[in-house]
């Protein structure tokens, strides 16, 4: 199954990911950056395995992120 990777440190908190895919993203009220819901952190880099169905939308989100910190592998 494909994986979403979020390099959270570099997030500028623009909110595009949350606007486009609220099922997977939230904006943190604490530090203003995006949260990949249920993502698992490895040294501040968050990963989440997702079912194939959401991939199309996730790929669009990855493309939309202005600082290119969302990757799909």
């Amino acid at each position: 199954m494909p994986k979403i990777i979020h390099y959270r440190n570099k997030c500028i908190g623009c909110g595009v990911c949350y606007e486009q895919q609220p099922s997977l993203w939230r904006m943190s009220r604490k530090d203003g950056k995006a949260i990949l819901l249920r993502g698992i952190s490895k040294k501040g880099i968050f990963q989440l395995t997702v079912p194939g169905e959401v991939m199309e939308q996730s790929a669009a989100v990855a493309k939309a992120c202005p600082v290119n910190i969302i990757k799909i592998v």
Binding site: G13, G15, M27, S28, R29, K30, D31, G32
Partner: peptide, 9 residues
């Protein structure tokens, strides 16, 4: 500034 920035701010 967005609403989600308030606390950080």
């Amino acid at each position: 500034m967005y609403d989600h920035d308030r606390q950080l701010l």
